[in-house]
Structure formats: C-alpha cells, structure tokens
Design a protein around this nucleic acid. Structure first.
Length: 504
RNA sequence: GCCGCGUUCGUCUAGGGGUUUAGGACGCCGGCCUUUCACGCCGGUAACACGGGUUCAAAUCCCGUACGCGGCACCA
C-alpha cells in the first residue's frame, strides 16, 4: 500500500515536466560502442515519452581534443538513425550546444558558489598536487582534512588572494565539501546509493584555463537545458555525489539519475580498446558500419545488452524498441559483449527486410567488391536465393561470388566426394540436352536432369552434385535448379564443359 | 590501499519468499525437412558464487567472505 503510494508520487513527480534527455559526448575520440548504447537509451526514453533528445558536445578539454571526433560522432549517430531534436547544427532554444561556447556562462555560476561560500580559490600547482599524491601512503585527497595545508583562499589572507588574482597568477576554483554528512540519492537502475561525504573531495570546478570541469559544466548545463533524466555510464556513479552537492548549493532540483552497467569484453574484463582489437571486436561505431552490420541490428543488440522488455520478444525495430523501453527494466550488472549474438541479430534484421530493400542493402556493397556495374534485376534474383543464407549483406558477393564470375577453382574435398568417374559423361549429356531445350527454366532444367538420370540408370544426385561443383566450384548453395535459371543456359553449359576439361 | 556498484546456464537474461522438476534467447550437440548448404521446425546440454542468519518455507530478505567492474585528475 505504502509502496504503491510512493510509486504514484514518484511517477507524478517524474511526469511533471516533459522528458528531456541528453547525450553528451566529449570529442576526445571516436564514438565507441558503449557510447552508442548510452545514446540509444537516452534516445529511447525520449521517444517513448514523446520527449526531447539533446546532443551536447562537451569540449572543455583542450588537451585531448581530437579534430575529427565530432564529425565521427555525429556521423555515427546518423548512421545508427538516432536523430536528435536539439544540438549542433539543428539548434534549439537552450543553446549553444558546445560547452566551449558557454565558457562565459559558467563564470557567473562559479561566482555564485564563491559568494555563498560553497567554493574557493586554490593556487596549488599541478606539481605540488602530484608531489602530495606521491608522498601520501594511501592516496591524497584535497578535502576538509587537507585543504588547510594547501594554498587557497581559505588559508591565505584575503589581500594575498586578491593580489595573486589581480597579478594573473593561475588559479582554480574548488567546491568546498562539508565533511559531516552522508550523501544519498536514488539511482533509477540501482535504487538508493549513498556515499560518505568525507570521501568526496573538493573537486575542481573551474580550471586554470578558465574552462569548467565536467562536473560543473554538466550540472549547470543539465539544469539550464531542463534535463529531466541523466542516463550515463556507470563510470560516473562515484562522482554523482559531487553533482548532487552542486545541485544543492545552487538550490536546483536534480534530475533523475540512471547509471548504465558497463559493457565488458567477451572474456569478462573491461572492454579496452587494445583487448577488443586482440579479440577481433570492433570498438568504434564506424568500424561496425564498415564491417557491414545493419544499424538496426546493432541497436537491437545493444538495447538488449542491459535491458529487457519483460517479454520473450527479442527482435525489435528502433520504433518498437522505443515503444517497449523503460528505465526500470535496465539491469545493474556488467554485461559481456557477444559477437555471436550480434551476428544473429544481424541475420534477423536482414531477413526481416523485403527483397527490394535487401537487394538495395546488398547493392550498396557492390563497389567495394569490384562489381559496380551489376544489373539490378539480376542482383535481385541472386538476392532472392541468398537472402536466407547470409549473415551480412556483403556476403552475397563473397559467399556466392560465382553468380558474378566463373569459379576459378573447385573445392578439393567436394571434387573427391562428388566428382565420380561417370561425371564427365553425365554432365556432357546434360549440357547437350539443355542446349536442345525450347525453354530453359528452373523446372525444365530439373526435368531434363531427372530424365537423363533415369536414362543412365543412376540417381539424380549423381548429376546434381557434380553440376553444382561445375557451376559454383563449391558443394553448398541455393537450390541447384533455381541457381541455373538465374545463371542462364549459356553460362551453365559453358561452366559444365569447362569443368569437364578441368576435372576430367 | 580506500570508496562505490555488482554476482541466475559459456553469454544476454526472466523470475525477487511457497505458483520452479529455475523459463526464454545466442552458442553448442542431436533429429526432422531437403539428394547440397542454409532457413525453418522439434529435442538435448547447461546456472541461482560461497558461508552464516531470518523464516514453517530462501535463487528471492539480512550479514559476512570471495571474485569482478568502476572511481579515487586543473580527463570526460
């Protein structure tokens, strides 16, 4: 009863404002797979509640800035189909959407904290901080216990502080965390989380270059942009108390927090770039695009990596995901990346496409396989036969290359198993009969073959298998007769005679 | 080291006091279909980390241990 009441209250609280979420990548590298999942969950929540999905570029780190990272990130989002309602280029009412362009804006909020005594100036150099960290046995923390030993506006006389600032001495602004309480907050996926505030350090809010740190900028922007739900990776959980404190200092209502479980490597450890590459797992979203994954399949896989719909359904389109999504069905434990399952999702999404769409997806890879002038109708016929047989669209050009050029070799094992002594005679008879046919179709090719088998007193397989070998060079593939109709009579006959010569 | 979060088949997960001989999916194995291969269908393999407690009853609640992951920057 009480729980129900609380749930209703919580729900009404949540719904009091329209849902606004943001994906806030830093242009310090290309969009990676974990980032895409974070973006996806934000996107899904926004779409589910007819809310707004904001893209904000957190470019406050000038040291690690990567020139083409932003282009990669937006290209990856576009490839995936995660469109944003506000952000760079599309604009919006609460911009700018680059933190670097909001630099001046943070200044007033820092001043507000300084005035209210929740922040102070600190002049310690990176070198002295490093030195303190090195000499400390169990790590150094700039906090209530140590701030008295440092050079800051709490230890220095006011005149000295003013003098140094006027003189242009570099300084940072730190938040002043009171040690006496414990900070607790509700995480949508984990429930109540609490930290002892003496473990929270006096985080730098404003760097000496005048840029805000993530912690300050993120809180100020989320408030100014009216963000209702902060959905981000679990790596942010330990710094959330700082953010809660900042909301408190500013007198703002914090958004709901949801910290997503991290994606682990298939071997259990963390998915570092190096490990992933060693295991053959692409890390960058652009690598998935390049490897030929269907964007919807990747998204579907990622959605189910940490979330489940509560039903046994697994294959979803992006629209269906948005419909089914809810934050309270997001799990809280780390999840291992499974390439096999991803591939399965890719197959499922490929097969869900109608033939025309599938063909178009396949055609997009033609150039890369040196087949830029393939006839569309012909390709569609090939695709009809290969649709259920490939895991990736581009495999039509690799797994069934023989539709586009004569086989250059014959599978050794296949020859040994299927090319018997009577094969040349049988194929030769079959080829001749095919040439004599009025109309060459799947049906007549089959009937002709069976007639010849009967005439020679052997099973149809005796001809079927060597013929397949002659046409494709391999022992597997679509129905032989359907294949023959697509290849055409002339090609079939020619390849059969070539095989007779080659294999004897 | 300290702080936090986590732990159900190999993997993703359902279940959150009795409805469970713990369900589904991927993978793997077998079968059916098919004179190929795949698709599809049917079946099988396989899990509540460990130890205490609470309770008539624990995968489910509590405590501890182990292990994993994250964090401890003028990086995000």
């Amino acid at each position: 009863m009480l729980i129900m009441l609380l749930t209703v209250l919580a729900a009404s609280h949540m719904c009091s404002r329209p849902v606004r979420v943001r994906f806030a990548p830093s242009p310090t590298g290309y969009l990676h797979i974990g980032g895409l999942r974070t973006a996806l969950y934000n996107y899904l929540l926004a779409r589910k509640h007819a809310g707004t999905f904001v893209l904000r570029i957190e470019d406050t780190d000038r040291e690690r800035y990567v020139e083409d990272a932003e282009t990669d990130i937006t290209a990856a989002l576009e490839w995936a189909g995660l469109s944003y309602d506000e952000g760079p280029t599309v604009g919006g009412d609460v911009g700018p959407y680059y933190q670097s362009a909001r630099k001046e804006l943070y200044q007033q909020y820092v001043q507000q904290l300084l005035d209210s005594g929740h922040a102070y100036y600190a002049f310690d150099t990176p070198e002295t901080l490093d030195a303190r960290r090195e000499e400390a046995e169990h790590g150094f923390s700039y906090n209530a216990a140590t701030r008295g030993e440092m050079e800051n506006s709490l230890t220095l006389p006011d005149e000295e502080v003013t003098r140094r600032i006027a003189h242009g001495d570099p300084y940072v602004v730190r938040m002043k965390v009171a040690p006496e309480s414990s900070i607790r907050f509700e995480d949508t996926v984990r429930g109540t989380v609490s930290f002892a505030s003496e473990k929270v350090d006096d985080q730098v809010l404003l760097k000496s270059d005048g840029m805000p740190t993530y912690h300050l900028a993120n809180v100020v922007d989320d408030h100014l942009m009216a963000i209702t739900h902060v959905i981000r990776g679990e790596e942010w959980l330990p710094s959330t108390p700082k953010h809660i404190l900042l909301y408190r200092y500013f007198g703002w209502e914090p958004p709901a927090f949801a910290h997503l479980p991290l994606i682990l490597s298939p071997e259990g450890g963390k998915l570092s770039k190096r490990d992933a590459e060693a295991l053959g797992i692409p890390v960058s979203v652009s690598d998935y695009a390049e490897a030929g994954y269907e964007p919807e399949a990747l998204l579907n896989f990622l959605a189910l990596l940490g979330w489940n719909p509560g039903t046994e359904e697994e294959v979803f389109s992006l629209e269906e995901l948005a419909e089914a999504f809810s934050l309270d069905r997001v799990g809280s434990s780390g999840v291992q990346f499974d390439m096999d399952k991803l591939r399965w999702f890719n197959e499922q999404h490929l097969r869900a496409l109608d033939l025309g769409t599938f063909t178009a997806r396949v055609a997009a890879h033609a150039d890369a396989h040196g087949l830029d002038d393939v006839d569309k109708d012909y390709l569609q016929q090939v695709c009809a036969l290969m649709h259920e047989r490939v895991s990736f669209a581009h495999e039509v050009f690799t797994e069934s290359r023989y539709f586009f050029e004569a086989p250059t070799s014959y599978d050794q094992k296949g020859v040994k198993k299927r090319w018997k002594d009577d094969a040349p005679a049988l194929l030769s008879a079959y080829a001749e009969a095919l040439e004599a046919l009025d109309t060459f179709t799947e049906a007549t090719a089959e009937q002709t073959l069976r007639d010849i088998a009967d005439a020679h007193g052997c099973g149809a397989g005796r001809i079927i298998h060597p013929t397949r070998l002659a046409l494709s060079g391999v022992t597997f593939g679509p129905s032989l007769f359907a294949m023959m109709e697509v290849l055409g009579r002339a090609t079939c006959v020619e390849r059969m005679r070539t095989a007779i010569e080659e294999l004897g």
